[in-house]
Write a protein that binds this DNA or RNA. Structure first.
Lengths: 155, 155
DNA sequence: TTGAATCCCATAAAATACCATGTTATACCA
DNA sequence: TGGTATAACATGGTATTTTATGGGATTCAA
């Protein structure tokens, strides 16, 4: 069942007054291919929306089920935050999803959204915020370059 | 038999004078899809109602049957409480269930209820109480960041 | 027969599907 | 390779359906 799929690229799309955005066509192809659905939620650490396939979250739910017993409170907090925030977003015949007010507000998105591929996941950003974030990440990576190299060599 | 189903999102619905509440449509779709039923009971640790599919409780019962040593005596007692408390809630043609006085009282719900998805389970809260609980959880999770990270990576 | 539970109908609002158009990307052919 | 035909896509607008919710009628049991 493990099929190859990767959310990639960076795509800028308009958000209309109703909160509708075209899901990048590549993403749509993945959803159809795997017969899954898109699920989005507020990033826990960043001002952006995070998305993935429903089957990815389902796998997480199964892992939690299997690793803890029914009454365990260990993972209770986590499941509340993740599943309580996540929502299924199906796209219409023209390929658009309708983002909720809550998500748009969290990411400070008004009329334009940037889809950023992250492999098994993707993010949706306010364009200006993403630009800054990308800069930040690039610098971060450059700083840690030696460490990264050293780690790889030591393997 | 493992089909994908996830109780997600946070939905606020009115509770009328008769104690009727609309079950979120996504939840109804799951029930129909799996040809199961909704079961609710008082949370053992929190002032909220907890719900799941009847087949989820059935699975729990089977697990207990099959592996006596896995479940401690304490947990056996807990299951007694759950099964003693749990009740099936079917929804009418307009999609509403009728919560009992006992459950509403336990969760301190009067005219508004919040459904919070938890994956295989969900909770029903008094709005104000849920707001506080969500705050508490967010702080808790941020403190235990490493645990969260580990969990998220497993996606 | 009274109170409670269930069912059915009505309505407003919100979500979803559908249609039309300009634009961009892709395929095809000379 | 260059140019044109074709298909795919993003996006604005509109129509249709679904959903939540109030109210009333009917049924059932104590």
């Amino acid at each position: 069942m493990r099929k190859v799929f990767l959310f990639m690229d960076t795509i800028i799309n308009k958000v209309d007054a109703k909160g509708r955005v075209s899901l990048p066509s590549d993403y749509r192809a993945i959803v159809k291919d795997l017969e899954s659905e898109i699920v989005c939620y507020r990033s826990l650490s960043l001002p952006c929306i995070e998305g993935c396939l429903e089957e990815t979250l389902d796998k997480l739910a199964t892992d939690i089920e299997d690793s803890t017993d029914f009454f365990s409170e260990t993972q209770d907090n986590l499941t509340n935050l993740i599943f309580g925030d996540a929502k299924r977003f199906t796209f219409d015949s023209t390929g658009r999803i309708m983002l909720s007010e809550k998500l748009l507000k969290h990411a400070d998105i008004t009329d334009t959204a940037v889809f950023v591929g992250k492999g098994r996941k993707f993010q949706i950003w306010n364009p200006e915020n993403w630009e800054k974030e990308e800069q930040r990440i690039r610098q971060e990576v450059l700083k840690n370059r030696p460490v990264l190299k050293k780690q790889k060599e030591s393997e």
